[in-house]
């Protein structure tokens, strides 16, 4: 079962382009963010943000509301592309390739990063259809293979036992917690290298939250996870690395242990101590 891979161009999303100015970042970094600026209608939202996302670990982006966490996350898979008046400058690189370079195949790029939204966003189709959606886009047509992909990914998020007898029911009938796991299975079905989570558990009850957190902890053995969270406790529970944002700027980033127990910056200390936020 482990080897059900379908023919897809996973690593190449850049046509005829190699990053001209290689940036120095940590070895094997899943993502390298350098001097990222985002402005909407001239108003800056992110200012000169730089950090690395280490591979096969969970990086939590923390900070008070409105500090630009979500904007930052959305810059990583170019979700701002269709937002009018949005201007992004700076570099975000994967494998040395700048995702904002001209000629980048945005669809292929996004496929490398699964997105888990704040509220579960099941597509208007069956449970099966949701998981098969991505593979189908990439040309998987054989029913047998699709079924295997669906089964494998539903098992990976622990949903198979719960839904295997209603695969063809509308996904909307599942509970919110199940829907979020379905969204995760859907993201995994296109074999991403990175999972981006935008407060992915904020709509869930504590039990469903724990299920998702346990899944993420398991998944980090294979992929890199970037999670925006506004609950510090969640970051303390699952983060390996922490990026602290404040007023659109990256204040501090480092290992979770260092940021939580021995922050360098005063603002970070105040935030993790609970006096701001």
């Amino acid at each position: 079962m482990e080897n059900i891979l379908f023919e897809m161009n996973t690593s190449v999303f850049v046509d005829n382009y190699k990053a001209t100015a290689p940036v120095s970042c940590i070895e094997n970094a899943a993502l390298c963010i350098r001097g990222l600026n985002v402005a909407i209608q001239g108003k800056p939202i992110l200012k000169d943000v730089s950090f690395d996302v280490p591979p096969k670990s969970i990086t939590c982006i923390i900070g008070p509301s409105g500090c630009g966490k979500t904007t930052l996350l959305r810059s990583l898979n170019r979700m701002h592309d269709y937002t009018a008046g949005m201007k992004v400058t700076g570099q975000v690189t994967i494998d040395g390739n700048d995702i904002y370079a001209p000629g980048v195949d945005v669809a292929a790029l996004r496929r490398r990063m699964g997105l888990l939204a704040q509220r579960p966003t099941v597509l208007p189709m069956s449970v099966f259809g949701n998981v098969a959606y991505g593979p189908k886009l990439y040309g998987v047509k054989r029913g047998e293979l699709l079924r295997a992909i669906v089964e494998r990914n539903l098992k990976a998020v622990g949903l198979w036992e719960e839904v295997h007898d209603r695969l063809h029911s509308p996904a909307g009938i599942l509970s919110v917690g199940q829907q979020q796991r379905l969204c995760l299975a859907r993201a995994l079905a296109v074999q991403p290298a990175i999972i981006l989570g935008d407060e992915a558990t904020s709509a869930l009850d504590p039990l469903a939250t724990r299920t998702i957190e346990e899944l993420l902890l398991r998944l980090k053995q294979q992929l890199s996870i970037v999670l925006v969270t506004h609950t510090l406790r969640q970051a303390r529970r699952i983060a390996d690395h922490v990026v602290f944002m404040y007023m659109g700027e990256m204040v501090e980033s480092g290992s979770a242990q260092q940021v939580f127990s021995n922050p360098v910056h005063d603002l970070t200390r105040e935030f993790v101590g609970g006096s701001i936020g």
Binding site: M79, R111, L115, A117, T121, L123, V190, L196
Partner: peptide, 11 residues
């Protein structure tokens, strides 16, 4: 969100 869920899968 629904559109973005699809776009994020590479659609």
């Amino acid at each position: 969100d629904l559109r973005e869920a699809s776009l994020a899968l590479g659609a």
